[in-house]
Nucleic acid binder design. Structure first.
Lengths: 232, 232
DNA sequence: ACGACTTTGTGAACGCGTGCACGAGCGATC
DNA sequence: GATCGCTCGTGCACGCGTTCACAAAGTCGT
C-alpha cells in the first residue's frame, strides 16, 4: 500500500491553514533556515503552537523531538498533500476588471497554476489580450477544458452571469470553482465551490468599525447605565 | 436607553452570513417580494433554516410568526447592524493590477463605500488615474485619512510592502484593514484585519481536486485493500 | 554513557457553532 | 371569537475544532 496517503480525513480548518504554513516555510527555506519548531511557525503564522503541531500531525510524524521540523522536507510534504506536486490548469471566466487583474497576476504561476484560458461572452472583448493570454469566446470553453484537462475554474463575471458560467464549467468537466461573484452558485454534488466576496469582507469590517464607534460613544455618554461589558 | 443596540455579542460566524442575507433580501426587495420566511432565505442562501432564524434573532425579534420576515424592514435592520446606515471612506494602498481592479470595481459604491484615495510608493504610478481617482503618493496617506476620516484601508501591494503599508495605515488612524497580500500582518491590539489570499483559495481547491483524483485511482486499482471509506 | 533539556505528538477537557425539535405567537377562516 | 395552520424564537444535544498538559522521544553537553 502507498506509505502515506490521506491517513485520516483532514479537517477543513487545517486544510485552510496548510497554505499559510507553506508560504512561511518556503520563505524561511529561501532564507536558509533548515529547521523550525512548531513555536517558530506559530509566531510567524499568528496561531497557537499546539494547533500547528496538531495540523502537521495530520500529514504524519514528520518532526523530530527536541529539534523541530526540517523545513525543506515539510515543504515537500505539504505541497504533496495540497496537490502542488504537479501543475494545474485554470480557466478564468470574465475578462472584466477582475478577470484582467487575475490574468495579469504574476504569483499565479508561482505555485504551479497555469492560466489555460480567459473567456468572455462579450464579442468585443474576445481576442483582446489579458496577461499575455488571448481572450476566447465562452463557447470555446468545453473544448479548452477537455484539451488541456482543466480542473479549476475561476468565475469573475458580473453576478447575473455567474450561475451560467458555473453551469458551463460543470458541463465542461470542471469540478472546482473559485467564485468571485456575489451570488450563491448552485452546483451538482461533487463539485467544490469557494466564494470570495469583496462586499462581504468590507461589510464585516464596517460591522466591527461601527461597533467600535458605538462603544466609544457609549463611554462618552452619560454613565447612568449599568456596566455593559465592552470587550476590546 | 437606546432601544436595540448590540443586545448580545453576535457570533463571528453570524456576522459573516449577514451580508449574504442582505444581498439576497435586497435582490428580493427589488423584485417586489414583501415577505420571506426563514426557509425561503435558507434556500436562496444555501444554509439551514434554523440557522437563519438564530442568526436573525441576534438582531432582535423582527419576524412575524405565521408570516415570516418583512423584507424591507429586515434589510434596514441588517444594514444598520453592519454599519451600512452611513457611508464609509476607504483607501487603497497599491496601484498595481489588483489595486486598479478594485478602483474600477463598480459594486464598491453600491453599499456606501467610497474610495477616498488610491496610494502607491512608486513615483511612476503617482498621478495616473485608477477608476477615476488620481493615484497619490503614499506619503500623503495620513493627510487624506485625517481629512476624510477614513477608517478602512485595503492593502493591494506586493507581499514585501504589505507590513509597511499596514503600519502606515495604523499610524494614520485606520482601524480596519482588508489585506490581499499573502503575508500575516502584525498590528496593534484593537485593529481588525481580514485577509483574502488568492493562493490559499486555489490551494484549498487543488487539495480537494487532488483528493478526488486519489480516490478515483484508488477505486481503479487492485481491490486488495480493506474497504476504505471514501466520502463523496 | 548518562542526565538535562528541548520539542514533538496526542489524549482529554473545553467552548463554540450547528441543527433539531418544540412551544409560543400571529393571521386567516368560518 | 374560537379553531386551525403556519412560522418564528429558542432550549438542548451533538459534533467539530481549539487549547492545555504531559509523556515519549530525540539532542546536546559533559
Amino acid at each position: 500500500m502507498s506509505p502515506h496517503r490521506s491517513r485520516r480525513r483532514i479537517p477543513d480548518a487545517t486544510i485552510a491553514r496548510l497554505p499559510v504554513y507553506l508560504q512561511i516555510l518556503a520563505e524561511q527555506l529561501e532564507a536558509g533556515v533548515e529547521n523550525m519548531s512548531s513555536e517558530d511557525l506559530a509566531n510567524l503564522g499568528g496561531v497557537n503552537a499546539a494547533k500547528v503541531r496538531k495540523d502537521l500531525s495530520y500529514l504524519g510524524s514528520y518532526g523530530t523531538r527536541g529539534v523541530g521540523y526540517e523545513v525543506e522536507y515539510l515543504v515537500y510534504q505539504i505541497r504533496r498533500e495540497l496537490g502542488l506536486d504537479h501543475d494545474w490548469n485554470v480557466v478564468i471566466i470574465g475578462a472584466g476588471n477582475l478577470g484582467q487583474a487575475l490574468g495579469g497576476y504574476g504569483g499565479f504561476s508561482e505555485n504551479g497554476y497555469h492560466i489555460a484560458g480567459v473567456f468572455d461572452i462579450d464579442e468585443s472583448k474576445v481576442d483582446s489580450l489579458v496577461g499575455g493570454v488571448r481572450v476566447r469566446h465562452l463557447d470555446d470553453l468545453a473544448q479548452v477544458v477537455a484539451a488541456r484537462s482543466v480542473s479549476i475554474g475561476v468565475i469573475a463575471t458580473p453576478p447575473a452571469a455567474a450561475q451560467d458560467a458555473a453551469e458551463r464549467l460543470v458541463r465542461s468537466g470542471v469540478t472546482s470553482i473559485l467564485n468571485f461573484a456575489p451570488v450563491m452558485l448552485v452546483v451538482p454534488h461533487g463539485v467544490t465551490v469557494r466564494k470570495v466576496d469583496l462586499a462581504v469582507e468590507l461589510q464585516i469590517l464596517s460591522y466591527h468599525e461601527q461597533r467600535r464607534v458605538a462603544a466609544a460613544t457609549a463611554l462618552r455618554s452619560v454613565q447612568g447605565e449599568s456596566g455593559r461589558n465592552v470587550s476590546a
